[in-house]
Simulated scan of single mutants.
Amino acid sequence: MFAGAIAAKGGILRGCFGFIDGTARPISRPKHYQRQCFSGHKRHHCSKWQAVLLPNGMIGSLYGGHRGSMHDSTLLTSSKVLDALQQKFTTFVGPDGFCISGDSGYGRAELVKKPFSKVEVLNDRRKKALNKAMSRVREPVEWGFKEMRMYVNPINKLYRVAVILISCHHCLHHNQASQYFDLEPPSLEEYLVTFAE
């Protein structure tokens, strides 16, 4: 269902059912561990988060509250989200299995497909077309993070609660991603029962 919705919008990665991305939530300069919390890339102190967003606008996985200097690929490894996905989906691995789309911050992994580098697309029109097509359908990931920025204060526990509440709101009201991919979010009851498992 999700892979079909992404393909219908021009995503040409076979089996791609979601998008993974990291975000850095600004925090006040801490009294201790300033160096660990500082992101040289963002040029401020922050807390790093990773989310897997689904085309119906729901957040399939949220992991974070880690030091700002942590790289996205390190966050992916420590989250163990790929292990969880492999256990959930038996057809996840292989050329015809499912995958999630990530940005260039993620290393090469069989389950996370990232764009080809500028060097790789230099003389290869097919790779360039793939990058362009997947870039268009990756935009909903940024919509999800933008929405989280509007509603929350970047304190770790509040951030997690805010994500759950935003997801509950998405169950009751259409969101930008679910409208774009023409998918219904789960009912509130279906969503909340996932926490009982």
Rank of each mutant, 00 (worst) to 15 (best):
H170R: 12
V121C: 11
L188K: 08
R136N: 09
Y180V: 05
R25P: 00
Q34L: 10
R35C: 05
K118D: 13
T23C: 11
V163C: 12
V93A: 12
T77Q: 14
P186M: 04
G10K: 04
S104A: 08
E147W: 00
P115N: 01
D96T: 15
A51C: 15
K31W: 06
F19K: 09
T91C: 13
M1F: 06
T23F: 10
F2R: 13
Q34A: 12
V141K: 03
Y180P: 02
N131P: 02
K42P: 03
E120D: 14
S73E: 10
V141H: 04
K157Q: 07
P26G: 10
L183N: 06
P95Y: 03
S61N: 11
M150S: 09
P30L: 02
V137G: 05
A51I: 10
G105K: 12
G105D: 07
F116C: 10
S178C: 15
Q86K: 12
M1H: 07
G94N: 08
A5P: 07
F92A: 12
A196C: 14
R160L: 14
G105F: 06
H44D: 02
V119E: 11
S117Y: 13
V81K: 01
G64A: 01
N56V: 03
G18F: 09
W143G: 01
V161P: 00
A129K: 13
H45V: 01
D182S: 15
E190L: 02
M58P: 04
H170E: 01
G94S: 08
E120A: 15
N156R: 09
I6F: 05
A7R: 10
E120S: 04
H44T: 12
Y63L: 03
N123Y: 13
L82S: 02
P154F: 03
A51S: 10
L82Q: 09
G4H: 15
S73F: 04
P55H: 02
K80A: 06
Y191E: 03
N175H: 00
A177M: 01
P55K: 06
C16V: 11
F89G: 02
G60S: 03
H174R: 14
